[in-house]
Write a protein that binds this DNA or RNA. Structure first.
Lengths: 149, 149
DNA sequence: TATTGTTATACTCTATAACTATA
DNA sequence: TATAGTTATAGAGTATAACAATA
């Protein structure tokens, strides 16, 4: 125990290397399954954030999602074309445009995040017991902190 | 406790929804930082697998990494051009070409998985204590099972 | 016929560069 | 000048389609 702290434990190096590889593989595993709603992860991520945090400007979304404003601009144009988000002027700053979920956007955000029937849910249910799911749930909280850095 | 098991616990639905969004965000966080060795996650993933499992054919790698054979073909061509993998004929099946790590490929695979200097390692070190790192390490094992599905 | 692998081509996501409008 | 947003263009990764060689 004390030893772990005293010596430079290899744990952090392992976690880093394995996590990097894991994220790529999980991405492809999730993309391979999951045609379901026809939405890319980038789009779901933006919808999800708008649902959590409320309306936001394009540049706020861009930095939160760690993409360039130009990239977010493209994503938002696509979401708008699909009727999932709408734009309204910022009350005081006329440069900004606030992005908000449409009613359909709300429904999509909800169903994308909580669809209990999709592949991932079924796999989690069959692959892990309750204790492992609780561990995963805690790990996800920890990793969300990481994703914000 | 018993209640968790008896009622359809919302835990699995939460994990599923949050995990999907998390993976996308982690991907971009990792890609934003981490130019370091100049290798994409896809490439590191292939090198990593070759290091773990030994030489393999292109089609084996493709299904293991969940990409189409055509996509793996492109990835392998790039890795070969960088001198990290080499090809040798399959001993019995002349259709197949076995892919193996070169000496430089071995070094790169090792350092990519255990690099103690990169952004991710530093963030992990500063952001998490030893207990949290152990939890992450266990979670990564669990999620690797998921990535293979 | 089925399998392994490649080349040709296109799509998605994200990047950089250059621009307009507003603060 | 600095900030918010857009359009134009390019690169990486992966997909589908069509093909050649071998089983």
């Amino acid at each position: 125990m004390t030893l772990d702290v005293m010596m430079e434990s290899p744990l952090v190096g392992d976690v880093a290397g394995n996590l990097r590889v894991l994220v790529g593989r999980l991405l492809r595993a999730l993309q391979a399954q999951d045609p379901e709603d026809g939405l890319s992860m980038s789009k779901v991520s933006v919808l999800s954030r708008l649902a959590d945090d409320g309306p936001a400007s394009a540049s706020t979304l861009a930095s939160a999602e760690r993409v360039r404003p130009q990239s977010m601009s493209a994503t938002l144009a696509a979401l708008e074309a699909e009727g999932l988000v709408a734009r309204r002027p910022h009350p005081t700053d006329r440069r900004q445009i606030l992005i908000e979920l449409t009613e359909q956007g709300w429904q999509t955000a909800r169903s994308a995040r909580r669809s209990r029937e999709d592949w991932l849910t079924r796999v989690l249910e069959s692959e892990y017991d309750q204790e492992e799911l609780r561990l995963l749930s805690r790990a996800i909280e920890l990793l969300e902190r990481l994703a914000e850095r």
